[in-house]
């Protein structure tokens, strides 16, 4: 059977709801697209640990110190599971981490920004994890079975993070004027990156991920779903969103909103965000300083009977 025929059959099977396993035959285009997508997801979990991690040391209570540490730990755990899934598509974890710290591969735009106050922790926990949950829940319908299996566990943990994030938000909003303002300022800082997080409105027929059912929803569908859930919650708390156009259009059945600056978005994901180089340089330095630990882990020395 020719490659083209095989690919056509594969595509037909996927379109009919078929699932793909790591050991199955798959077209190179599918393998590459799946690898890149899952590798970027894994990278984003690992890099996403850094902005929040900065507030573990500065958490305002012992309980929050514990819950934030546990949350960042979970994000690292997600990266761990996702790299495992990506590895089966033909690239080793070492190679993926090397490419990440060399700036050769990408991670989500929102993890290139600084975390200035505890309000940023609230925004990340509530809105960015909320945005991630919206996209990841949609991915549960995707065609790559090993990814779906891991996503089930990730989504369960993300729901916990969501609750943690909402709890942090509610405490700030029920707190002093300074605390409310701290959250409002953070929402103002993060709104545009969050809009960018979903990606620009795209042409579905040109989206390779939709073609292979590695994604099942368009960027715009996901963004609209995010608005549905989170904007009313913010408004009820008296927290405004820095987009004067944002409102639900009853007749059109969707939200109207203002397009962010997409040039900034492309600059950021290409590695020119405000914190990109600082965070990558630091990770690179930690990585290089501990090559000896990786060697010690790789070796199975002639051990004394212990």
């Amino acid at each position: 059977m020719s490659y083209e025929t095989r690919t056509a059959e594969f595509k037909a099977a996927i379109d009919a709801g078929g699932m793909v396993e790591a050991g199955d035959w798959m077209p190179d285009e599918y393998r590459q697209a799946a690898l890149r997508f899952i590798e970027m997801h894994a990278n984003s979990e690992i890099m996403g640990a850094l902005p929040e991690r900065e507030w573990i040391a500065r958490a305002p209570s012992l309980r929050r110190k514990l819950s934030l540490t546990a949350k960042v730990q979970d994000e690292v755990g997600h990266g761990h599971m996702l790299y495992r899934v990506a590895e089966d598509l033909g690239k080793s974890r070492d190679a993926m981490i090397a490419d990440l710290i060399a700036g050769k591969t990408k991670f989500h735009n929102v993890f290139h920004y600084p975390t200035v106050t505890w309000g940023d922790v609230a925004v990340i926990g509530f809105l960015i994890d909320g945005a991630a949950l919206v996209t990841q829940k949609a991915l549960l319908e995707c065609s790559y079975a090993p990814y779906v299996r891991v996503l089930k566990r990730i989504c369960a943990e993300e729901s916990l993070h969501q609750r943690h994030g909402e709890d942090v938000v509610l405490e700030l909003c029920a707190g002093s004027d300074a605390q409310r303002q701290m959250f409002q300022d953070a929402v103002n800082r993060w709104w545009e990156p969050i809009m960018q997080f979903f990606g620009p409105p795209s042409k579905p027929e040109r989206d390779v991920l939709l073609h292979w059912r590695l994604k099942t929803r368009t960027n715009e569908q996901l963004r609209q779903r995010f608005f549905d859930t989170y904007v009313p919650k913010l408004w009820d708390l008296g927290i405004s969103v820095p987009d004067p156009a944002l409102a639900y259009d009853e007749a059109a059945g969707e939200w109207t909103w203002t397009q962010p600056n997409w040039d900034t978005f492309w600059q950021v994901v290409k590695g020119n965000g405000p914190m990109t180089e600082t965070r990558l340089a630091w990770r690179r330095w930690m990585h290089e300083a501990h090559g000896w630990v990786r060697e010690a882990m790789a070796e199975s020395p002639a051990r004394s009977a212990a």
Binding site: V72, V76, H287
Partner: peptide, 8 residues
């Protein structure tokens, strides 16, 4: 947390 020399 987040930067240890081995993911696990």
């Amino acid at each position: 947390t987040g930067v240890a020399p081995h993911l696990e």
